[in-house]
Design a protein around this nucleic acid. Sequence first.
DNA 1: CGGGATTAGAGCATATGCGAGCTAATCAGG
DNA 2: CCTGATTAGCTCGCATATGCTCTAATCCCG
Lengths: 211, 211
Amino acid sequence: MYRDSSGKTLEDYPRPSVAVDTAVLTVPPDEALSVLLVHNKEGWRLPGTFLHENERLADAVLRSLRQKAGVTGLAPRQLKVFDEPGRDDRGWVLSVAHVDAVPASRLDLTESDARLVPVDADELRGLPYGHGEIIEAAVAALRASYEEHPDPARLLQRPFTLRELRKLHEAVAGQPLARDTFRRLMEPQLSATGQMSTGRVGKPARLFWHE
Amino acid sequence: MYRDSSGKTLEDYPRPSVAVDTAVLTVPPDEALSVLLVHNKEGWRLPGTFLHENERLADAVLRSLRQKAGVTGLAPRQLKVFDEPGRDDRGWVLSVAHVDAVPASRLDLTESDARLVPVDADELRGLPYGHGEIIEAAVAALRASYEEHPDPARLLQRPFTLRELRKLHEAVAGQPLARDTFRRLMEPQLSATGQMSTGRVGKPARLFWHE
DNA sequence: CGGGATTAGAGCATATGCGAGCTAATCAGG
DNA sequence: CCTGATTAGCTCGCATATGCTCTAATCCCG
């Protein structure tokens, strides 16, 4: 075992507990961008857990989402480390915040103590442990990733129309988008299926998918 | 002291050591974008340190830069947590990578075991502990911040000419920039001093500063 | 001292992007 | 069955952006 110049191992020095917290974002059909909250004895929170020995951060995230919300198969991305020493009453805890976006159809919340809350809801501002900040950072990261790409998080079921894609982007951005400007930016990045939409009011639209 | 439902404190659970590593970027006069390396008994590395008890990550970064490279007064920003359990021979160590950019004049390296290396140098790819990846991420973050703003990290001594600003941007971007396009993007964000440059070949240029 | 090199600023022609309006194609409801 | 509502795709006029060239103003060196 490694010992430094004063004969101490790494374990001889004070170390923080490390936790992970995750903002899981989704867009339920015809609704606003929302975040997943789970309920524990203290109230509604972002899903999270303490890191187990030699565990990867992403693995801890996946474990916490499976156990707390019955959600699997995500690909979480790091956002920021929250390191205020007094942020947790239980002791010195660092939290590594993560974000992931997932189609609403992947979130079966019927048997878990979890629910979706629109990201603009007032209640999110009152969350402790910096969870409000985590959600803000997560939304900013998702918005940045959707700025110039059709559907990086694959939130839309394919194939889709330009209108469906634009409605998704408007939900992510939280504001209306100019129809033609949006089409000019996205269409070159899409692959036309050659088929047209049916069963809807209005002129049939071309159907697309993307890489 | 807090105890959980099985009577254990946070300290009863395995915890990682947490380190910070920092890519300090600068642009020496008439040179390429470079990163600061310090020398320890293992070789040339990014400056870093283990987190002390209840210390903020940014404070640890500042302490390590002061002690290892004699550098003060920076404003480090988090990049990413490196969490591969086997990344450090000494034990389970997470590293929180940071980045900061600083004018070269702030780096007095004459009395410390430190030097600047251009970010494209081959030797950086061979650095252990993910330091090569940290540098890549740091360069990407700096480039993104300079994409549309004159000098967010205040690397230029003021006042400055458009040419000086463009040369800085070309060093950060690592490629030439179109003169007129660059001027049109930046000039609206600058404040003219009303003075002209002197003592140089070529038509005198207007001098600027910015917020 | 003058010419060449270098640089700056501005004007102009061309290319590209944007937003509004028009035509066309559906569906729903009376 | 027909009309109105809704939506799609495209065109066009206007606005904006780009890149090149030209004139002007320095400094350096022979």
